[in-house]
């Protein structure tokens, strides 16, 4: 019995789908000085969750998630190929090594935070994204098109702290690494453009503005994109907070205050909030660190080295080269974890063996291991752990193992890449 409890989670089946419970706020985000509440863009806690910005269904979320993953693979593939070429040729400038156009797709399993922009400040809800760098918001007068957003669109002419950036400035030149596109000029003003893998885009003026995280954490002269032409599946949010590693990202621009340290906790339900906290104050003493992987050198992604996976307390037999040849990264905007085929196959087999008592259900989209839990009050699922380099063992929460479309179709929340080298 003790062994079973150690190796399995017992969860209420009714908890697998979103409820309409009242919102419970994160105590850490409420108490910590440099901390913001993190919430599902369309959960109970979000003021965006109504009207025509309705939450996309879960099949649509999975479809958009694959587009984001495809664009990451394309970006890394180009970077790797360029790096290989450069080994045999004259070293080129860093900007030339970067992909010309593609960013990542926004996806739709998005988490948002609210920040203040301008003077007087306007509160805007932004997707927070560790997989991209440029922070931007839609701006009036929207010279081409703006998509529908819940909050009023930011109007720079109403802010006393807004300044356009000259196209001769160094920061305009930094756009190529932050967005994949060089800055351009319009009446001496720097114009940025960022296009995402699903053809969503934002184009507008690169600007400096006051950004207010909290009443005690205010940044004058923060560089951001004031988007005058924006299209895509942004689901009613006002823009994006770029948390990647590029020099224009939020962590880099605020490095003197926070030393490029930030942390977050993603809530397990739409009726609770988590936190996004900048700086190292208040970090849990139980945090275990793994080194950033060299697989993402030359990019602004955060690379990880996965070295093993366990299911129900048993380490899976996966050759170490399966992980090392492909590498890994961590991303706040990708919904479903992708694994090399051999690793996914081992995970799937072990999971199926532990779940053999439950009836199976049809596969859906990228998820191929599903169960019909109709009629069950609770379900026992095997615990899943990831081992990262440096001996960092991370046991996933019960909510991080399954992805429920409906009670009759609850799936293992992992997917396979198309080949072991992608």
């Amino acid at each position: 019995s003790k062994r079973y409890e150690a190796d399995f989670h017992t969860i209420e089946v009714s908890s697998l789908l979103s409820s309409s419970s009242p919102c419970v706020l994160s105590p850490k985000a409420s108490k910590t000085k440099s901390s913001l509440h993190v919430m599902h863009a369309h959960g109970t806690c979000s003021h965006l969750s109504s009207g025509k910005n309705a939450i996309p269904d879960r099949v649509e979320i999975l479809k958009r998630d694959q587009a984001r993953v495809d664009s990451f693979h394309a970006k890394l593939s180009k970077t790797t190929k360029t790096a290989t070429r450069n080994a045999d040729r004259v070293r080129q400038r860093k900007s030339a090594d970067l992909p010309a156009k593609d960013g990542s797709t926004i996806g739709s399993g998005n988490y948002i935070v609210t920040v203040g922009i301008g003077t007087p400040k306007k509160d805007l809800s932004l997707i927070f994204d560790t997989g991209s760098d440029l922070t931007w918001t839609q701006c009036e007068p929207c010279v081409r098109t703006c998509y529908s957003q819940k909050e009023p669109i930011f109007n720079p002419s109403s802010s006393s702290s807004y300044y356009n950036v000259s196209c001769s400035s160094a920061v305009c030149g930094a756009l190529s690494s932050a967005t994949g596109n060089s800055g351009s000029c319009s009446s001496s003003t720097c114009v940025y453009g960022i296009q995402y893998g699903d053809q969503s885009f934002s184009v507008g003026f690169l600007a400096r503005e006051k950004l207010t995280l909290t009443s005690s954490d205010i940044f004058d002269g923060f560089y951001f994109g004031c988007g005058e032409n924006n299209q895509g599946l942004f689901n009613g949010v006002a823009g994006l907070l770029g948390l990647g590693r590029d020099q224009l990202s939020f962590p880099s621009q605020t490095a003197s205050r926070y030393n490029k340290v930030f942390s977050y906790c993603l809530p397990s339900s739409a009726a609770t909030t988590g936190h996004l906290t900048f700086g190292s104050a208040g970090l849990s003493r139980s945090v275990k660190f793994t080194p950033l992987s060299s697989v993402t050198d030359g990019t602004s992604f955060y690379g990880l080295d996965i070295v093993g996976i366990s299911v129900a307390g048993q380490k899976l037999t996966i050759p170490s080269t399966v992980f090392s040849s492909a590498g890994a990264l961590i991303d706040s905007g990708t919904v479903i974890t992708r694994l090399p085929p051999k690793a996914y196959s081992a995970l799937k087999s072990a999971f199926q063996a532990s779940m053999s008592r439950y009836p199976t259900a049809p596969a859906v989209s990228i998820l191929d291991t599903c169960y019909d839990l109709t009629g069950y009050r609770t379900v026992a699922i095997p615990k899943v752990g990831f081992l990262f380099s440096g001996g960092v063992d991370v046991e996933l929460d019960a909510t991080g193992i399954l992805y429920a479309l409906k009670i009759s179709q609850v799936c293992l929340g992992f997917a396979s890449n198309s080949d072991d080298s992608s």
Partner: peptide, 30 residues
Amino acid sequence: VAIFGNVQQQTLEVVYDGRGGRVGFAPGGC
């Protein structure tokens, strides 16, 4: 590449230390 996605990150405290070149994890972060 493999990608560690946000379903699997739920309730973990995930720490990014850009200057120290490391990423950290702790359970029960929310």
